[in-house]
């Protein structure tokens, strides 16, 4: 909700809860407003561009790709990405296997690499159906997979977080890492889309 100065809207019940909780915690010395503001800014900097950089690096550096697939967390650390408690598993799309990620229990997501999850990732419909009818769900995102393609669904139920390493499109020879990263969308790294070179 956006408020203009001089045109305040009343708080919703839950906004009122947020302000109240936060003020109580600040009064008790448990958090400071500065800490909250700092974390808000840190989270704002975590966007799918971070994940796209990891993918583009893997596409251009086979040694890095091998290390990333062996241990996603170490791969991120190697690129200087702050991972905190992230335990990352990178799953690779191939001509035979397409990977897609869901969390049926809540909304586990590689936030350090992709930011806050999109609304639909947390929706009942996505969470209920992706484990059972992945092909139908993907087609609702406009991704039609051929019948020979095997789908591997990852239900992110506990401590690991998943990033899909999409296939590099064929027509991208000679592209810079930066240009490659520009075609790697958030949805490609969740597995509900594939990168397109045009």
């Amino acid at each position: 909700m956006k408020e203009e100065s001089g045109n305040y809207q009343p708080y919703s019940y839950f906004q009122l809860m947020e302000v109240s909780l936060r003020e109580l915690l600040v009064e008790k010395g448990i958090v400071t407003d500065a800490q909250v503001a700092e974390e808000v800014e840190a989270m704002r900097k975590r966007t799918p561009a971070v994940g796209a950089g990891v993918v583009a690096k893997a596409w251009t550096d086979p040694g890095f790709k091998a290390r990333l697939l062996a241990d996603g967390t170490l791969g991120c650390i190697e690129l200087g990405i702050e991972v905190a408690a992230l335990k990352l598993v990178v799953v690779e799309n191939t001509p035979d296997v397409h990977n897609v990620v869901v969390c049926t229990l809540c909304s586990c997501y590689p936030r350090m690499l992709l930011g806050i999850p999109p609304e639909w990732y947390k929706s009942r419909n996505y969470r209920s159906r992706t484990v059972r009818e992945p092909r139908e769900v993907l087609s609702e995102f406009g991704l039609q997979l051929n019948e020979q393609m095997k789908i591997r669904v990852h239900d992110s139920t506990a401590d690991m977080r998943y990033l899909v390493l999409p296939m590099r499109p064929a027509e991208t020879d000679g592209w810079s890492e930066e240009r490659l990263a520009s075609i790697v969308t958030r949805d490609c790294m969740i597995g509900v889309a594939v990168p397109k070179s045009h």
Binding site: R132, R135, K150, I151, R152, V153, T157, D159
Partner: peptide, 16 residues
């Protein structure tokens, strides 16, 4: 899933 309609090679991975 009884009556699963996708590719017979489709798999599901879950942390347990």
């Amino acid at each position: 899933w009884p009556g699963y309609k996708g590719n017979p090679g489709d798999v599901l991975e879950v942390e347990i």
